[in-house]
């Protein structure tokens, strides 16, 4: 197994992988913002964890980055472009550069594990070739390498609905890395998993992305996991950032500010 052979960045050197959000605002209902002009500069490597209570706009924030949710105002600067201004083919080209891992895995249940991983290449492969399953040979090699890296090589031919939750999330990670992304977004990737599997998934993500120098932006409920794996923690409440610092700086008073109350501490 070659170390990080696949997905280790574009051939002509690594571009600047830092993501900048400037005054990002989202209103699902006019006049009631879910995100209140959020501005964050993310580092070009390492993991940034976004924590905060449910319904505070973390998921919306992550989904705005690759425009699964349309931001109402603000800029999303990545790889020298403003993601918020892109449309159609340009937007799809930009999305290819950003991998995403989901809470419910979002695998295509009736396709095999290997084909789910290859779905990460759909932005590069024409629909016609995808229909005939004529993926380029290097993509197929890459998919097998990633399956091996997540420890599921022998499950390649199994359908996704035959896999356990942890296995599905591993496939989800492999699919995201299959895009050879310059940024990895993770939306509550461990919320549907048991504690042990959660740690394994976090380790896997950190290791595989770290090897490829891909920065991770993760939104996560579990503060302990965030402190253990992230280099930076952003605490949000009511659509605004209320804490931004290193994990060891996060104290109980910060958590109180983020989540409110203290009985749970």
């Amino acid at each position: 197994m070659t170390q990080g052979g696949f997905g280790s960045g574009a051939a002509g050197g690594t571009p600047d992988r830092s993501l900048r959000l400037v005054g990002l605002r989202k209103e699902y209902v006019r006049g009631t913002p879910v995100l209140r002009d959020v501005s964050i500069d993310f580092a070009p490597k390492g993991m940034t964890a976004i924590i905060g209570p449910s319904g505070t706009g973390k998921s919306t924030l992550i989904r705005c980055v690759n425009r699964l949710v349309e931001p109402t105002a603000g800029q999303i600067l990545f790889l020298g472009r403003d993601m918020a201004k892109l449309h159609g083919g340009e937007l799809r080209t930009a999305r290819r550069r950003i991998g995403m891992v989901f809470q419910e895995y979002n695998l295509v249940e009736r396709l095999t594990a290997i084909e789910n991983v290859l779905c990460g290449r759909l932005g590069y492969v024409s629909a016609w070739r995808a229909w005939l399953r004529r993926y380029p040979a290097e993509d197929i090699d890459g998919a097998f390498e990633l399956l091996e890296a997540v420890g599921l090589a022998e499950r390649a031919g199994q359908r996704a609905d035959a896999l356990s939750g942890g296995q599905r999330q591993r496939i989800g990670i492999a699919r995201a890395l299959m895009q050879r992304p310059d940024l990895l977004l993770a939306d509550e990737p461990t919320s549907s998993l048991d504690p042990k599997t959660s740690v394994e998934i976090m380790e896997l993500m950190v290791e595989l992305a770290g090897r490829r120098d891909i920065p991770i932006v993760i939104n996560i409920h579990n503060v302990e996991l965030a402190k253990r794996f992230a280099q930076r923690i952003v605490g949000m409440t009511g659509g605004s950032v209320v804490f931004d610092g290193r994990p060891e700086e996060l104290r109980d008073e910060h958590l109180k500010a983020i989540y409110g109350g203290e009985a749970w501490l």
Binding site: C119, G120, L122
Partner: peptide
């Protein structure tokens, strides 16, 4: 959502 996020047409 996942395939849209991967930039699939």
């Amino acid at each position: 959502e996942a395939l849209t996020a991967a930039g699939a047409p």
